[in-house]
Design a protein around this nucleic acid. Structure first.
Length: 792
DNA sequence: GGCTGCGTACAGGGC
DNA sequence: GTACGCAGCC
C-alpha cells in the first residue's frame, strides 16, 4: 500500500493544482480548458495512467482520441513510459482511425452480416480508403453519371460534399432549396458519388465517421457494445472536432448518463474551421453535458514572457473567446526578432544564416529549431536554402513518401489485392507498367462495366464480350485480369504484409520495368519501391511486437469482468484485421511516420502541422498580408476583427508564436513569387498588433499597418530605400549572398572556392560590390564580387 | 496504342 | 513553378 501511495505521489508530484484536479477528477463529464504550453498532454496521460493504476480501470476500457496521428503517436509513447506494456491495451488513436477499425469489425461480425444499414451496403471488411485524388476522380465520374449541369468545378463540389459529411448529413439529409441550382448539382453528385464509392467497396475520409454514426444510430446492439466497453473517453484538441465527430462522442457517451467524457482543448487554438470544425463544440460543452466540471489551465511552462505577451497581443483582438490569460513565472527572455528581406529567397537564406548563428552560439541545437510557413508552396525555397547552407533539416509534411507516383502505384496494386472492386485503383495501374492497354480499350471496358453494372475487374474477366475490342486487346485484358486475380488469391492466404508486397512486386515487374528504363530518376523510383517493401517488413515487426506485449499483460492480474458483461469484447480494435489490410490502413490514415523523427535536424513545417509541438527557437516566415494572414481571409467581411476567417488566421498566429520557448523570429519579404507572378505584399497585420518594445525597437517604426501598404509600390528595391521604416541591422545582414548593404566590415562570409573568411572592406553596394575578404591561411586576402559570397 | 509537347488551371491546411 | 488534359504525331 505504501508503495502504491508513493507511486501515486510520483504520478502527481510535478503537477500544479488545476492539473491535479483534472487528473483526479472522479466520474462525469469534464472540460479542461488548456492554454498553450499549459501541460495538457501531461494531464491526459497522467489521468489515463491514474485510472489504470489507482482506480482499477482496465486499459481496454479507455478510449483516447486525438486529432492528428502525430499527437496519437506521442501520447502512446508517453503512456508506454508511464504504464509499460499495459499501454498497448489502451485504444489511443485518431477519430478516423478508430472509426475505421470499428467499422471493419462491425462488417466482419457474423451477427451483423445482414446489418440492414443502407449506407453500408456494398462494403466488406476489406474496404479501401480513398484519398483526395481518388475522390476528385470519382466526383468527375459521378458528375458524368448523374448528368449534372457542369456549372460547378469538380473541386468545388467535392468541397461542398465534404462539408455535408462533416456536418453529419447524408445526401437525403441535405437541405437544398429548389431554386438553388448549385445546391441541386451538389446533391445529385453526392448521391451518385456515394453509389460509386459503395460499388468500389471504398470509403472516403468523411465516410469513416459518417457511416459509423449511421451504423450506431441504426443498430442499438452495436452501439451498446461500445458504450459498455469504453467507460472512459478522453478527447484531445476538442476545439477541432466537427459536428459528426461530436455526434459520435454523444452516441458513445450520452450526455444524460453523465458519462466519463473528458475533453481537453483551447478555443484560441481552433484552426480547422475550414474543414468543418466547430468551436461551438467546446464553447457549448457545459450546456450539452449538464453537470460538467470545468478546469482551466492557465500557467504556461513553455515560453518566456515576451513571447507570451506577443501571442496575447495578437489573440486578444479576437472577439469570441473564452476569458483566460496565460501567465508564466519564467523570465522576460530575449526580444522577438524581425527579419525584413527583399524576397523569399533572401528570406530563406537569412533564416538559414540565423539558424547557423544560433547553432554556433551553442545554446540551441538544430533539433531545437523549427521553421514554419503558412502554405506548403513556401517550403521549396526554404528547403533549397537549407541545402545550400548545409543546414540539416526534416520536412515535416506528413506523407511525402507515400505521395510519390511509383509508391502510389504499388499501393494501388495492394488495394486491388484486398479489394479487386476498387475501380479507382484499377484505372490507376491498368497500364502500369505499360502492357498495351490504352485509352480506347479502357474506355470500352468502362462502358461495358457501366452497362452491366459490374466493377471493372469483373468486366475484365470476360473481355471477349466487350464490343469493339480486337483480339490483341482481349488478350491483354485477360492477361491483366489473371494478374489481379492471382494477386487477390495470394492476399487471401498471406500471413503478413511484407510477403504480399513482395509477391506483388514480383508479379507486376514494377521494379524491373523501372530498372530497364535506366535513367537516374527511374533508379531512384525503383529504390523507393524497395523501401516500400522495407516499410511493410517494419510494419510486420511492429505488429508482432505489439501483439506479444499485449498478450503478456493482464494474464495474472486481471480482475473479474462483471458477469453481465462477460461477452464484452476487450480485444484491441486492430486485433482481427488481416496484416495487409492493416498495412494499407496505416498508409491511408497515418502516412509516413518515420519522416517525422528528425534527430539533430531543423524541422520545416506548416503552421498547422506545428500545433502541439514546441521548440527553443521558432522562425515564422512569410509574415505578409496575403500570405499570413492568407489572402482568402483578407476579404472576409467588414466586421471589426475581419470576420471568422481572419479570426482563424489570428489563432493560427497564436499557435505559431506559442510554439517558441526562448527565441521567436518573424520574417517577411517585400516581394515574393506567388502563382508564378511577383507580388508585393504589405507586412502582416499581426506584426503591427505586437507591441514594438517586444522587438526591442523603441524609436524606429515597425512596418506600418497594412492599410497604408507601403511595400505594394511596384519596383521598389531595398537598396534604393531611403525613406520610411527600416531596421538597418537586419537589412544589411539579410542582404548577404544577394549582395551587401550597410556596414559589413568584420562580417563572417563563405566563398565556394576560398572557404570561410572575414570582410575587411567593401567597395560599393548590392550584389556587384567588390569586397576585400581575409580568408586566412594559404588563401589570405582576396577581392571578390559580393554576389559570390554566402552567409558565414 | 503510346508518347511528347504544349496550354491551361492552379496552390489552404490534414484525416 | 507544377499537374493535368488534350492534340498531334509516330
Amino acid at each position: 500500500m505504501a508503495l502504491a501511495l508513493n507511486a501515486e505521489n510520483e504520478l502527481l508530484k510535478d503537477l500544479n493544482e488545476p492539473q491535479k484536479e483534472a487528473v483526479l477528477h472522479g466520474d462525469g463529464p469534464l472540460l479542461v480548458l488548456s492554454g498553450a504550453g499549459s501541460g495538457k498532454t501531461r494531464v491526459i496521460t497522467r489521468r489515463v495512467a491514474h485510472l489504470v493504476r489507482f482506480r482499477g480501470v482496465f486499459p481496454w476500457r479507455i478510449l483516447a482520441v486525438t486529432f492528428t496521428n502525430k499527437a496519437a503517436r506521442e501520447m502512446r509513447e508517453r503512456l508506454v513510459q508511464l504504464l509499460g506494456p499495459q499501454a498497448h491495451e489502451l485504444v489511443v488513436s485518431t477519430f478516423h482511425s478508430s472509426s475505421s477499425m470499428i467499422l471493419r469489425r462491425a462488417l466482419k461480425d457474423p451477427k451483423l452480416v445482414d446489418h440492414k444499414v443502407a449506407e453500408l451496403m456494398g462494403l466488406t471488411p476489406s474496404f479501401v480508403i480513398y484519398d483526395d485524388g481518388d475522390q476528385l476522380q470519382l466526383i468527375k465520374r459521378a458528375m458524368r453519371e448523374a448528368r449534372v449541369d457542369p456549372i460547378m468545378q469538380p473541386r468545388e463540389i467535392l468541397h461542398r460534399i465534404d462539408g455535408e459529411k462533416n456536418a453529419a448529413r447524408l445526401p437525403d439529409q441535405m437541405v437544398v432549396d429548389v431554386d438553388d441550382a448549385r445546391g441541386v448539382v451538389v446533391q445529385k453528385t453526392y448521391h451518385a458519388y456515394q453509389k460509386l464509392l459503395r460499388a468500389a467497396n471504398a470509403v472516403d475520409f468523411g465516410d469513416l465517421l459518417l457511416l459509423l454514426v449511421a451504423l450506431l444510430r441504426q443498430r442499438p446492439d452495436v452501439l451498446e457494445q461500445y458504450q459498455k466497453r469504453f467507460r472512459h473517453i478522453l478527447v484531445d484538441e476538442f476545439q477541432d472536432t466537427n459536428p459528426v465527430q461530436y455526434e459520435l462522442l454523444r452516441l458513445l457517451a450520452p450526455p444524460e448518463r453523465r458519462p466519463n467524457l473528458v475533453v481537453v482543448g483551447d478555443d484560441d487554438q481552433s484552426i480547422y474551421r475550414w474543414r468543418g470544425a466547430s468551436v461551438d463544440n467546446i464553447l457549448d460543452f457545459p450546456e450539452h453535458f449538464p453537470g460538467a466540471r470545468v478546469v482551466k489551465l492557465e500557467q504556461n511552462y513553455r515560453s518566456d514572457q515576451n513571447i507570451l505577451d506577443a501571442a496575447h497581443a495578437v489573440i486578444r483582438r479576437n472577439s469570441r473567446r473564452m476569458p483566460k490569460k496565460l501567465w508564466s513565472d519564467r523570465p522576460k527572455g530575449d526580444n522577438l526578432t524581425l527579419l525584413l528581406n527583399r524576397d523569399e529567397r533572401a528570406e530563406a537564406q537569412e533564416v538559414a544564416r540565423r539558424i547557423h548563428g544560433l547553432q554556433r552560439e551553442g545554446f540551441i541545437k538544430y533539433s531545437g529549431m523549427a521553421v514554419f510557413y503558412r502554405t506548403n508552396a513556401q517550403s521549396r525555397v526554404l528547403e533549397e536554402a537549407m541545402r545550400l547552407a548545409r543546414v540539416p533539416y526534416t520536412l515535416v509534411s506528413g506523407r511525402s513518401f507515400y505521395d510519390r507516383a511509383e509508391v502510389r502505384d504499388a499501393a494501388a496494386y495492394l488495394r486491388l489485392m484486398v479489394n479487386p472492386r476498387s475501380d479507382a485503383d484499377l484505372l490507376r495501374i491498368i497500364n502500369t507498367p505499360a502492357r498495351g492497354i490504352g485509352d480506347t480499350t479502357v474506355e470500352r471496358l468502362v462502358d461495358f462495366a457501366n452497362q452491366s453494372g459490374v466493377s471493372l475487374y469483373e468486366a475484365s474477366a470476360a473481355p471477349e464480350r466487350i464490343a469493339g475490342l480486337n483480339t490483341a486487346a482481349v488478350r491483354r485484358l485477360s492477361g491483366f485480369h489473371a494478374l489481379v486475380s492471382s494477386l487477390h488469391a495470394f492476399a487471401q492466404e498471406s500471413q503478413d504484409a511484407a510477403s504480399a508486397v513482395d509477391q506483388m512486386l514480383k508479379e507486376t515487374h514494377l521494379v524491373e520495368s523501372l530498372q530497364t528504363e535506366g535513367s537516374d530518376e527511374s533508379m531512384t523510383r525503383a529504390e523507393n519501391l524497395r523501401e516500400f517493401l522495407g516499410a511493410a517488413q517494419e510494419f510486420d515487426l511492429n505488429r508482432a511486437a505489439a501483439a506479444v506485449a499485449a498478450s503478456t499483460v493482464g494474464d495474472g492480474d486481471a480482475a473479474p469482468v462483471p458477469p453481465e458483461e462477460a461477452d464484452l469484447d476487450m480485444s484491441p480494435l486492430t486485433a482481427d484485421i488481416p496484416p495487409l489490410n492493416a498495412f494499407l490502413e496505416q498508409i491511408s490514415l497515418v502516412g509516413d511516420a518515420d519522416a517525422e523523427v528528425g534527430e539533430g535536424r531543423v524541422a520545416l513545417m506548416t503552421l498547422h502541422a506545428a500545433k502541439g509541438l514546441e521548440f527553443d527557437a521558432v522562425f515564422i516566415t512569410g509574415m505578409e498580408d496575403g500570405v499570413f494572414p492568407h489572402s482568402r481571409a483578407l476579404h472576409g467581411g467588414e466586421s471589426e476583427d475581419g470576420g471568422e476567417e481572419m479570426a482563424e488566421e489570428r489563432r493560427l498566429c497564436y499557435v505559431g508564436f506559442t510554439r517558441a520557448r526562448r527565441r521567436l523570429f518573424v520574417s517577411l519579404a517585400q516581394c515574393r513569387s506567388l502563382f508564378g507572378e511577383l507580388r508585393y505584399n504589405p507586412p502582416s497585420r499581426f506584426l503591427a498588433e505586437v507591441p514594438q518594445e517586444l522587438f526591442g525597437i523603441a524609436e524606429q517604426e515597425l512596418p506600418p499597418a497594412p492599410k497604408e501598404a507601403p511595400f505594394t509600390k511596384k519596383k521598389r528595391n531595398w537598396a534604393d530605400e531611403d525613406d520610411g521604416p527600416r531596421v538597418d541591422r537586419t537589412y544589411s545582414q539579410a542582404a548577404e549572398g544577394e549582395g551587401i548593404g550597410g556596414d559589413v566590415r568584420g562580417m563572417r562570409v563563405r566563398h565556394e572556392q576560398f572557404g570561410m573568411g572575414r570582410i575587411i572592406s567593401a567597395d560599393g553596394q548590392g550584389p556587384n560590390a567588390k569586397v576585400t575578404v581575409d580568408f586566412g591561411g594559404q588563401v589570405g586576402l582576396k577581392r571578390v564580387i559580393a554576389r559570390f559570397l554566402l552567409p558565414g
